[in-house]
Computed example of a mutant assay.
Amino acid sequence: MNRTALAALAALAITGISAAFVPTLAAQDAPRMPGVQDPSRVTAGTYAADPGHSLIGWEVSHFGFSDYFGIFGDVAGTLVLDPANPDAAKVDVTIPVANVTTASKGLTAHLLRPGKDGGAPDFFGPAPAPARFVSTSVKAKGMTAIITGDLTLNGITKPVTFEAEFVGAGNNPYNKKATVGFEAETEIKRSDFGVNYAIPFVSDEVELEISVAFEKQ
């Protein structure tokens, strides 16, 4: 066999070994997400909301041309959870409305400014009370659940139903706490909570999107 043929066979052999070996190394070295959508990782107990990694997003239509977006952060509260009986779960969270933020300084200031000449504010006013949601019913099905409860906002309490999804569970790599994450969404009418300014030019309907991480206590 000539040198050219030997070189070709050697190259094929090396390539074959590399192709078989490299994926093994990649699989070993690839970083893994701490949280996985695996219910078997969830343990029973009381969990507290991680305020630094929990957000409530809201969206309203402005004049029918575009949408306003905003965020409430620093969510506090608890989740009592037993994976053997998910329908018995209890959620109680508080949202500091005064910490609302938007991409527009003018809009954020408008949401929190006092009423003109001592009148009622257009939206929340300068010192709004925190909002609170307390669940009254949980109906779980697979990775999803329908969560019904009482939402208190602007001093008014109304029933609200969320469609929720289990996102993942695992140990937080920094504080080592067992953590579970959920996302949920719903739509409310702000007029139900006495926030009536500029309807219908700013839509009465408000879409809410929730992403909350809970750490086991």
Rank of each mutant, 00 (worst) to 15 (best):
A103E: 09
F69L: 14
N154S: 10
L81S: 01
D122Y: 04
D150T: 12
V100M: 07
L151E: 02
F72V: 11
L153K: 08
F124K: 01
A129P: 00
T148R: 10
V93H: 08
L81I: 11
G142R: 15
K105H: 07
L112G: 02
V93A: 06
A98D: 03
P121A: 12
F133N: 05
P83C: 08
V75K: 05
A84M: 09
A98W: 00
T157C: 10
L107R: 01
P114W: 02
G73D: 15
P130L: 12
A127S: 14
D87A: 11
T152E: 13
T136H: 06
G118L: 10
T108P: 00
G77E: 08
A129C: 06
V93P: 00
L111R: 01
K90C: 06
L79G: 05
G115Y: 10
A145M: 08
K141M: 05
A129G: 11
D67M: 06
D117C: 02
A129L: 08
G73F: 04
M143H: 09
F133W: 07
L151S: 00
K141H: 12
T144I: 04
I156N: 01
L107K: 01
T102G: 02
F72P: 00
P126C: 12
G125D: 01
M143A: 15
G115E: 05
K90E: 15
T94P: 02
N85K: 15
N154W: 10
A127V: 06
T102I: 08
T148E: 06
G73Y: 03
A140M: 09
D82Q: 13
A120P: 05
V75I: 15
F72I: 10
L107M: 14
L79R: 07
F72Q: 00
I147K: 03
A131S: 13
A103I: 04
A120N: 12
G106T: 01
S104Y: 02
P96S: 07
A145Y: 12
A129K: 10
M143R: 14
Y68V: 15
I95D: 02
P96Y: 12
A76W: 00
D82K: 11
G77K: 11
L79P: 00
I71L: 14
T148F: 06
K139W: 04
P121C: 06
F69G: 01
A127G: 11
D150E: 14
R132A: 13
T101I: 09
D92G: 02
G118N: 05
S137D: 15
D92K: 03
L81F: 13
V138Y: 05
K90N: 14
V75D: 00
D67E: 05
P114C: 01
L81H: 08
V134K: 09
K105S: 08
P114K: 01
A109Y: 00
K90T: 15
G70M: 11
A109R: 08
A84R: 14
N154Q: 08
G77F: 14
F124G: 02
A84D: 09
T102C: 10
A131L: 14
A109Q: 12
V134L: 15
G155Q: 03
L79T: 08
A127N: 14
G118C: 09
L112R: 07
D82A: 12
V100C: 02
T152F: 13
A127F: 04
L112T: 02
P121M: 09
N154E: 12
T136V: 07
R113S: 13
G106A: 01
K116F: 03
A84I: 07
G119Q: 04
N99K: 11
A127P: 01
V138R: 13
G115R: 06
A109N: 14
